[in-house]
Design a protein around this nucleic acid. Structure first.
Lengths: 158, 158
DNA sequence: ACATTCCTGTTGACGGGTCAATTAAAAAGT
DNA sequence: ACTTTTTAATTGACCCGTCAACAGGAATGT
């Protein structure tokens, strides 16, 4: 009953085979899945969950360390951290020797939220990984690594 | 020299091994690469390039067809199309039998921009693909397909 | 001591992308 | 014919993410 031009879209639209396009779609879907899962369960956004996990794993850090280690934007971190401090998830304490930095750590509430959320997230990751054959997974990791390197190339060399 | 907590970040921060996180990073880098390439060469944004390619391949379409075929948001399409019509890249002609729809097609300028941009984009895609071994590439496609399906799962079943 | 340079974190501005509400037109039901 | 229900497209609100500008504070060099 569908009579548009796209009944077999992948044949008709070469764009849809572009690698970047496929990755973009997968990313969007994974993002949406994680976001609903997080907001249903913990009221966190994806960024804030990542920050929570990073601070949780690092113990006590500084914003700039997080930015470097996880390749997150300073501004994004700053804004999210402000909210998370206000929400009582993260403690930001002025550093004695460097007046610019705040030493970040999880509050008790932050840690317990982290610990209650982590299993669900790990379970999701496990489900995702389980949807792939073992060798597919290792190849996928390798391919992503190579693509990330190839994406660093800037076409200014001619 | 570097003496922070993240000298071997991947060991210390399990988050960084999360599949979704890796994909997210690759996506961001690919996005940035495509965006600079496009704006350097043609002044297009990534969304608009995609729309240009979709309309170019489809011949004459309607907004809703594009939205369905490429899983793009209606609002995003509408806004971008307005700009592209104003820029003279796309022709939007009122449909005779359905007063709501605009029949979209490339203008001459749109087609020539498409044709001058396509090779560069294909070249980039080729470079990206070439960074992977042939079997890695096919596995990557298969894995992305499976992941996309797994990402459709909503955790409301328990 | 002082000027310069570097680093840290905050803020503003902007495009990308999603969702919901709305308007208007077509199709379907009665 | 008229009401109701779908569908097409636009618009507004909102968050995410990136980039650039900025305002201290710290390090460096002289």
């Amino acid at each position: 009953m569908r009579d548009d031009n796209f009944s077999n879209a992948e044949d008709e639209l070469p764009l849809l085979q572009f690698l970047t396009y496929r990755i973009s779609r997968v990313h969007a879907k994974l993002n949406a899945q994680a976001s609903t899962l997080l907001s249903d369960h913990s009221g966190l956004t994806l960024s804030r969950w990542r920050i929570l996990a990073l601070v949780g794993a690092a113990g006590q850090t500084r914003l700039s360390d997080l930015a470097r280690a996880a390749a997150l934007d300073k501004g994004l971190l700053s804004r999210n951290l402000k909210v998370m401090v206000a929400d009582g998830l993260i403690d930001a304490q002025q550093d004695d020797i460097d007046q610019r930095v705040h030493l970040l750590s999880l509050t008790q509430a932050g840690r317990s939220l982290f610990e209650s959320t982590l299993p669900r997230m790990q379970e999701r990751q496990a489900k995702l990984r389980a949807s792939l054959a073992p060798d597919e997974l290792t190849t996928l990791y390798a391919a992503l690594e190579k693509l990330e390197a190839a994406a660093d190339w800037r076409g200014d060399s001619a």
